[in-house]
């Protein structure tokens, strides 16, 4: 588990639970698979970064900083967002 600055006043939900077109801040990444975590971090999906969910289907599409990423539900479930 990797935590950024937690915002106690805000709620923390997974990317899956987020509404599309909403912006939040990545709170933490939670996964047991070190490969996935490593990949997410290397790609710049890091705690503290602002994140905007653009789409939930056919897969999850979101924007972090200036880049868009497509991920599946499995991965989206590991990304916790505070908003």
């Amino acid at each position: 588990m990797v935590t950024g600055n937690s915002h106690l006043s805000m709620k923390t939900i997974t990317l899956c639970a987020m509404e599309t077109r909403k912006t939040g801040k990545i709170d933490r990444l939670e996964t047991k698979n070190p490969g996935i975590l490593q990949k997410l971090m290397a790609m710049g999906i890091l705690p503290g970064m602002p994140i905007t969910l653009l789409r939930k289907s056919p897969s999850y599409l979101f924007e972090v900083d200036q880049t868009r990423y497509a991920v599946d539900r499995e991965i989206a479930n590991h990304i916790y967002v505070s908003c």
Partner: peptide, 9 residues
């Protein structure tokens, strides 16, 4: 498998 892919413009 899991899916992560960067989406270029």
């Amino acid at each position: 498998p899991t899916f992560i892919l960067e989406m270029p413009p």
